[in-house]
Design a protein around this nucleic acid. Structure first.
Length: 510
RNA sequence: CGGAGCGUAGCGCAGCCUGGUAGCGCACUUGCUUCGGGAGCAAGGGGUCGGAGGUUCAAAUCCUCUCGCUCCGACCA
């Protein structure tokens, strides 16, 4: 009776469970190219929903979309010192533009060697900055607010589908402003857009805050992030927003004439979220029966499965489902009638694994009685038993939008309770921190859920910070961010013993 | 790139120690019977056992190399 749709549980082996969901929910698969992924229609549908919702918000805040090239001249990357340092180790390089056939073997044609190698963009600050430098002349051209949806490549050592892949898809916003205040306001505004988007669309609660110096984007003065808590207690950086100061403006001559006629450096920002969000959704909402998708990003919000029997009366059943489909579509609901000639039970469970928010099953009795039988994916079971509900057709249709809203809200509430309930705030010193996380030393597999801790600290920088980072590393911990909503700051720094100036989140992370 | 483990049908696995050229469950195909629900019976399809080389009359099994995956470490907006 306790049969689950997946063969691995979260409890048994979280990483394996994650991979099983990606596979069984038909989201993506690995490709012949190491570290890259094939995003399948169901996974792509989720990404399209993410794009649509976020793109609207990006436009609503005054940004315009455009597109810059995949290839960047190598010299561009070299312009900003920290930027090179940060990305040099993971860049794909194009050196030739032609192959030649040498005795049946394809080889690089030495005559087609590029004078200047091209790098495949790991991010686009430099090539966009180059354009900004040409586009911006006057203070009247500012602020310049640009966004692009693109793929980028970072040659990562270790990859996992959605969470960290060599090629991934994202949106990167790039803006230029007249002064620091304006650029910083932009940085914070987009962080807030990400927070609101994550919580209301992905139903994924996050903590927005500022990254410590060691976690800053290469070339940024300030980096902000939203951090989400996965079901294994690890943190996932779900989005970042950077205030780049005048570093890129200096390196690339991005200047404008102010109202007094003086040439002035721009202050720039950049911000992005990626397909990693999908991994976050899986690890936030998935259960031992597979994925659970928030209705706002589900490619199909309601899937109708007619209980076909390969008999003449199937036609009536399909017709009944068809009118139900149309009535639901009239509410703007994304509906699918799954008429595939597969066994009904098989279809049901495939939609359970994929996480369709509402799965409707229509049998002969529903059709004649004018009823609808359905399951809520967010509350699939009572104990081990699968729960299905039956309602009059008209009532089901009338209540469908509210039902989807309720599912969206309940997924968020569940995740929010987990986040709020698992941030420990009582840690006073490093020993307590070690004890809190270190109790499981030795059996790190499937260890108890530790969540995050919020501790006071004194914001050290430089070598003192490096030393702290090393101590944390020994416990497999990282500093996530200093939440924007600080609450009370009291006591002394858990690392230095000095008077605390802010609180930071510490956690194991992806 | 270092340590550990694993690659046998789409998925999950057995077989390997003690070589004799492949099996189980689910899924898939066909038929019959069932049918308010992850059905039963029967008959099928699908694998050069990750790849290459070696030992041997004979290799999934033993040896060497290699590729990939997972975990840990290093690395990572």
């Amino acid at each position: 009776m306790s049969k689950r749709a997946l063969t691995v549980t979260r409890q048994d082996n979280f990483p394996e469970w994650y991979q099983a969901v990606v596979r069984e929910a038909d989201m993506a698969e690995t490709s012949p190219v190491r570290g890259c992924m094939i995003i399948k229609p169901w996974g792509w549908g989720v990404w399209e929903r993410i794009q649509a919702e976020l793109d609207q918000r990006i436009k609503d805040t005054g940004h315009e979309n455009c597109y810059f090239p995949l290839f960047i001249p190598m010299s561009f990357i070299a312009k900003e010192a920290e930027h090179v340092e940060g990305f040099a180790k993971e860049m794909a390089v194009v050196t030739h533009h032609r192959l030649k056939n040498e005795g049946g073997k394809l080889v690089l044609d030495p005559d087609a060697k590029l004078d200047e190698p091209l790098i495949v963009r790991p991010t686009s600050e430099t090539i966009i900055g180059d354009a900004f430098q040409r586009w911006i002349k006057s203070y009247r051209d500012l602020p310049l607010l640009i966004n692009q949806w693109a793929n980028v490549v970072r040659w990562e050592m270790r990859t996992r589908l959605f969470l960290r892949t060599a090629e991934f898809l994202w949106q990167e916003g790039h803006t230029a402003h007249a002064d620091q205040a304006d650029a910083m306001a932009e940085t914070r505004k987009m962080l807030e857009v990400y927070r609101e988007f994550s919580e209301s669309v992905l139903a994924m609660p996050v903590i927005a805050g500022e990254k410590p110096a060691n976690e800053r984007f290469p070339g940024a003065d300030n980096t902000f992030s939203i951090e989400a808590m996965m079901q294994d207690g690890k943190a996932l950086q779900a989005g970042t927003s950077h205030y780049l100061g005048t570093h890129f403006a200096e390196a690339q001559n991005i200047q404008f004439q102010n109202a007094q006629g003086q040439l002035t450096l721009c202050h720039t920002t950049s911000w992005g979220v990626s397909t990693r969000l999908i991994g976050g959704v899986i690890m936030t909402h998935g259960d031992d029966d597979g994925l659970r998708l928030p209705p706002k990003i589900a490619p199909r919000q309601i899937v109708i499965v007619p209980m076909l029997r390969d008999k003449p009366e199937d036609a009536e059943l399909i017709a009944y489902c068809g009118t139900l489909e149309n009535d639901l579509k009239a509410f703007g609901i994304r509906v699918l009638v799954d008429v595939k000639p597969t066994k009904s039970a098989e279809k049901r469970w495939s939609w359970v694994r994929r996480g369709a928010p509402v799965i409707v099953e229509i049998g002969g009795r529903d059709a004649t009685g004018n009823n609808v039988t359905f399951m809520r994916r967010d509350r699939l079971r009572d104990g081990d038993k699968v729960v299905s509900h039956t309602k009059p057709r008209a009532a089901f249709i009338a209540e469908a939008p509210a039902l989807l809203a309720e599912i969206q809200a309940s997924l968020f509430a569940e995740a929010k309770a987990r986040l709020d309930g698992n941030i420990t705030r009582e840690i006073k010193n490093f020993d307590e921190l070690s004890a809190h996380f270190g109790a499981t030393e030795g059996d790190d597999e499937a260890g108890p859920f530790k969540g995050w801790v919020l501790v006071p600290w004194s914001e050290p920088e430089g070598e003192r910070l490096e030393a702290i980072v090393d101590r944390l590393k020994a416990l497999k911990l990282t500093i996530r961010n200093a939440p924007l909503e600080q609450g009370k700051v009291e006591g002394s720094c858990v690392f230095t013993g000095m008077a605390a100036t802010s609180n930071i989140l510490i956690a194991r992370a992806y």
